[in-house]
Amino acid sequence: MIAAAPWLVLTCRLLGGWALLDGAQWLSDARHWGSGSPLGWDLHRWQGRPWWRWSVFTALYSARGLAAMGLLQAGAGAWLVAGGPLPGLALAVVGLIGAAQALRGVGKGADKMALVVVTGTLLHLAGLRWHLPALVLAGVAWTGGQLTLAYAASGWSKLARPSWRDGEVLTRALTSYSWGAGWIVQLVRMPKLAPVMAWAIMLAEALFPLALLLPAPLLAAVLTGFGLFHVAIALVLGLNTYPLAFVAAYPATMLLGAWLRAHLGLG
């Protein structure tokens, strides 16, 4: 029931878009991560485990190695966007590069979510290929479950803080140079707008798990709202890889919602 190939195609295209953008950005910036630079591996390899000093990692995390990984990731992403054959292979490439970057310790939330979606999609594909519904469910549960956890945990951790509830954190963040933008400062300083925005964000995130029980069109509408929220964050905070990484998890979340509703007798 949850095998739904069209959702899988959509996931591959969205994830491909993320991989293309992220890989191209790595390719563009790799020269600043070389030996002798502030973030060079010749310095940072000393912070980790002994095996970090193996020559394979020195090559992988050199400026050339990072550029090569970026190129490979962007290529695999373009392949997925174009709907090329053997999407599992392209996903495995994206996943291995994501794992290498995760080991390097330079991953952000978008990278983590992309790796979650890669893993879930590979399980889903394998389940379809070998006709194993449990494997399909594992993939869908992993991606949809992590997305649900991501939103819910963000919401509840914010609700626990008085400074979030009165809008102070949001005002402080959006009026900073690190996290804000000039054009939003006037907006967030309007009386009572910051607490209203903060509560809207907190409640939407904290109550997201309940959305999984909504009929498919309503769940799609909720997810569209969250997708627009990610776009707004990209515009304000410049976190431009988050929208595609998170939206790539939405098809699996739709399938998880359908599975839950069917098994809870909600139609």
Binding site: K112, A150, W164
Partner: peptide, 13 residues
């Protein structure tokens, strides 16, 4: 590998 990620997104701020 961050297989068990912690999602906060400013929730710790």
């Amino acid at each position: 590998l961050g297989l068990v990620p912690q999602w906060k997104f400013f929730g710790q701020a």
